[in-house]
């Protein structure tokens, strides 16, 4: 069970959160072509290594935020607010 640090509340057990999938997926404009739209709907990066994903502190403050998590070790390298850019993670190369 992960231990996640909410940027607003602090360190809590995973049971207080809900997972919202990959973050930084931008929603195409309504006039997007079929290919672009289906890419948005169905394709995710699914990396082995650092995954930038969003979580909600569902049973806490209710806020959504981002996490950089290693999908192999489950280590969480960074937690940052919605709208912030992906953080620099020197030495934690995407593998």
């Amino acid at each position: 069970m992960l231990q996640i640090t909410c940027p607003y509340c602090g360190c809590r057990d995973e049971t207080e959160y809900s997972f919202g999938g990959e973050s930084h997926v931008s929603r195409p404009a309504p006039d997007a072509g079929d290919a672009e739209w289906s890419d948005y709907l169905f394709n995710r990066s699914n990396p082995r290594g650092i995954h930038y994903e969003r979580w909600q502190h569902r049973f806490g403050c209710g806020r959504w935020f981002n996490i950089a998590r290693d999908t192999v070790s489950h280590e969480i390298y960074a937690t940052y607010e919605m709208g912030d850019a992906r953080p620099d993670l020197p030495g934690k190369a995407d593998n």
Binding site: S18, G20, R27, Q56, R58, G62, R63, W64, M82, G83
Partner: peptide, 13 residues
């Protein structure tokens, strides 16, 4: 309720 929050906070903050 969660659906509305997600769209508001993540897409149209």
């Amino acid at each position: 309720g969660g659906w509305l929050e997600e769209w508001h906070q993540c897409e149209w903050p």
